[in-house]
């Protein structure tokens, strides 16, 4: 009875968390309600935060606690709160925005994820902080977030797609760059916050102008 590289408990848990990030990305892709997408994003951020704290504790990288803290405040609480507030103001519950059937979307996203997994899986990256499959999973999550932006045509999906892209990159950075200087990480967060504000402003403007959160009306500019 031989096993295919049985991971350590640490690696198994870390990978399971990375899988959870990818799965919540899939869930965002198919979630019918904008509100539940935001909740899923919040959940995903919580997993990423947990992963950061987990790495910080197990690999003794104290700087990561600060990252986890900021990420907890910003990505789990503040950003979802901003978007949810916008949704409440917009009073739109259901935005029909699937460009494809759910099953086809999931299969397409699965194909994208497979691509990401194999491309990065074939790269021999050595990491001291997290098992390398987490990098492949993060890449897959990034690719799925692209599909979320492409395949769903409403502002919330597209904005959440961007935010969760950042989550995927965060996981990737935990794998390959856990020691990233704090000032740089903080700059990233600050930037994320600014981007959120801009997304918020534009969502509001869009809703005020078109009375909808769908982006299918944005088809005037061509050529």
């Amino acid at each position: 009875m031989t096993h295919v590289g049985v991971p350590s408990t640490y690696a198994a848990v870390a990978e399971a968390l990375a899988v959870l990030v990818l799965l919540s990305e899939f869930a965002m892709l198919r979630a019918p309600l904008s509100r539940s997408q935001v909740h899923l994003y919040s959940f995903q951020s919580l997993v990423v935060t947990g992963l950061a704290a987990f790495v910080a504790a197990d690999r003794h990288v104290p700087g990561l606690y600060a990252i986890a803290g900021i990420s907890l405040v910003l990505k789990v609480v503040v950003i979802p709160a901003i978007v949810l507030r916008l949704l409440r103001d917009a009073r739109v519950e259901l935005v029909p925005s699937h460009r494809l059937g759910v099953a086809s979307m999931v299969l397409l996203a699965l194909a994208a994820a497979v691509f990401g997994l194999f491309v990065v899986g074939s790269m021999k990256v050595h990491s001291t902080s997290l098992p390398t499959p987490a990098l492949a999973l993060a890449t897959a999550a990034v690719l799925v977030s692209f599909l979320l932006v492409i395949l769903r045509s409403d502002v919330v999906s597209q904005a959440v797609g961007f935010f969760s892209l950042e989550n995927g990159v965060s996981v990737a950075s935990l794998v390959v760059a856990a020691g990233l200087p704090l000032i740089v990480e903080v700059a990233f967060f600050f930037d994320l916050l600014v981007a959120v504000v801009v997304f918020g402003v534009l969502m509001r403007v869009h809703h005020a102008r078109t009375q909808t959160l769908s982006t299918t009306v944005l088809d005037r500019l061509r050529g």
Binding site: P7, V19, R30, G101, A103, V106, L117, P133
Partner: peptide
């Protein structure tokens, strides 16, 4: 959709194994 969900999980299980023993 439900079937696609189950399929997704099953395929991911295999993939995770492939990319690195997960």
């Amino acid at each position: 959709e439900f079937m696609a969900g189950a399929f997704l999980l099953a395929v991911l299980a295999v993939l995770v194994l492939f990319v690195g023993g997960g």
